[in-house]
């Protein structure tokens, strides 16, 4: 670097591109408040305290429920940003379509249609844009879930990062998956966890890996067990640790899982060990946890194995609180992940 010392010593932006600095004491939103952990839950709680949700129920769940002429109507929305936009096995379009479809599906709702909002940065490659839209189009066709409406905004260069997608979805459920869980109920995971998170981390940190995102629409899978399970929840940001803690807190039960039974691809295990990252906290985009009575567990697992051979029972519901992991040596509490997921240094 041949920058002169006198230039460097002036306390101003050297590149001319830095945004203005805030005052030190001003409260600002931090990146970790969007990472699916405790901080995000607190931000959402504060944000939603400003609204009324009328007759809608389950407003803190994946989709909200409204009874309309004796039909169970479910409604959900989500915005998608991801770096990089294209990653092994998918792109942001796949996440945006599947995420909303899955939020409806885990409540037991058959998705009827999806909206698509695009916020595009000036200068964004058209071929990338159309590749992403093609992904959405193909998924929509395959799943038989139409794109019912949409909106497009183009923003000045630098004011958004390439592309943001918002999708909303509406669906109807014959049986809403909101049944109370009880001690003795079994906890099932629908496939190997953390594959999406691992694929993204490997791409972001330029590590060789054949792990692909697990992102996919889950309606077909959930529909196959909808009559057997009491509740389902898709595993997203915050991973299995976050989903299980949410269930334990909401249901005021203890969830005990057996570490050795958690489905994990060998390569995911290896990469998480190399990076020093907890696989329990890694994101999925096409996996879910469901809870059913013990007598239905085998049947549910058999149905789910048609879609993913790694589906299995990982633990059971007990009286108490917290999520407990039974390791090879002893029991440990699995806490709600907090902060950003960062690789270890040494």
């Amino acid at each position: 670097m041949d920058m002169s010392e006198s230039m460097a010593s002036e306390k101003k932006c050297l590149t001319g591109q830095c945004p203005p600095l805030q005052k030190e004491d001003e409260q600002v939103v931090k990146l970790s408040e969007g990472s699916g952990g405790k901080e995000m839950h607190r931000l959402i709680a504060e944000a939603t305290s400003h609204f009324s949700s009328g007759d809608w129920k389950h407003t803190d769940e994946d989709s909200s429920l409204l009874a309309v002429n004796q039909n169970n109507v479910l409604f959900t929305t989500d915005s998608y940003v991801v770096t990089p936009l294209f990653f092994p096995g998918g792109d942001i379009g796949k996440l945006a379509f599947c995420g909303t479809v899955n939020d409806l599906s885990v409540m037991g709702a058959k998705p009827l249609g999806i909206s698509l909002g695009l916020i595009i940065e000036e200068g964004f490659s058209k071929s990338d844009l159309f590749a992403i839209l093609k992904t959405i189009g193909e998924l929509s066709k395959q799943a038989g879930i139409p794109i019912a409406t949409g909106d497009t905004k183009v923003m000045e260069r630098g004011s958004v990062d390439k592309l943001i997608i918002n999708t909303s979805g509406i669906g109807v459920a014959q049986n809403v998956l909101d049944e109370q869980i009880e001690p003795g109920d079994k906890i099932i995971v629908s496939g190997g966890i953390g594959e999406h998170g691992t694929a993204l981390l490997a791409k972001r940190f330029e590590l060789e890996s054949s792990v692909k995102t697990d992102s996919k629409p889950l309606w077909e899978e959930i529909n196959s067990v909808v009559h057997l399970v009491k509740q389902a929840k898709d595993i997203t940001r915050g991973g299995l640790a976050s989903v299980l803690n949410e269930i334990a807190q909401k249901e005021k039960k203890q969830l005990t899982i057996i570490e050795e039974s958690i489905p994990l691809l060998g390569e995911v295990r290896a990469l998480t060990e190399i990076l020093g990252i907890d696989a329990y906290s890694l994101a999925c985009e096409g996996r879910f946890v469901c809870i059913c009575s013990a007598k239905h567990a085998d049947a549910a697992v058999e149905k789910l194995r048609v879609f993913n051979t790694m589906a299995c029972v990982v633990g059971e519901v007990q009286d108490g609180s917290d999520v407990i992991v039974q390791t090879r040596f002893g029991k440990k509490i699995l806490s709600m992940p907090s902060g950003n997921i960062v690789p270890r240094i040494c």
């Binding site: 590149t15 830095c18 945004p19 950003n340 690789p343």
Partner: peptide, 29 residues
Amino acid sequence: LSGVKVATYGDMINVPGTKMSLKDAQAQG
């Protein structure tokens, strides 16, 4: 904060300094 671009490993950005962390500096631009 003086406008020099910096890089470091993961956790380092979250360690509190006397007034703030690198993460706080990042949130300030």
